[in-house]
């Protein structure tokens, strides 16, 4: 069971990141995954990131401040 969280206040880059994550999950054929968008700034700050979008996998910040690529995400998710 993997828990993916996308931190971002709803900007275009954050939406792009979400679709990248969805694509990576789909291409890997992962089923036991939850994807959650965290848009509340107070919750985002709990992760201590200061540049969004950020991708959190199982509680670890894997990517911050940029839109990741699908191959990169696939590697992180495997």
């Amino acid at each position: 069971m993997k828990e993916i969280k996308i931190l971002g206040t709803g900007c275009p880059k954050c939406k792009q990141t979400t679709s990248m994550v969805e694509k990576a999950v789909e291409e890997l054929g992962l089923t036991n995954v939850t994807i959650e968008k965290v848009e509340d700034i107070m919750k985002i700050m709990e992760y201590n990131v200061i540049s969004t979008p950020a991708v959190v996998i199982d509680g670890d910040i894997k990517i911050k401040g940029r839109v990741p690529s699908v191959p990169e995400l696939k590697e992180l998710l495997q």
């Binding site: 971002g8 206040t9 880059k13 700034i41 985002i44 700050m45 200061i50 969004t52 401040g65």
Partner: peptide
């Protein structure tokens, strides 16, 4: 800087 980062950045700096 992307203006959508301005809030987390602001909080991060202040904190």
């Amino acid at each position: 800087f992307c203006s959508c980062s301005s809030v987390p950045l602001f909080i991060g700096f202040v904190r």
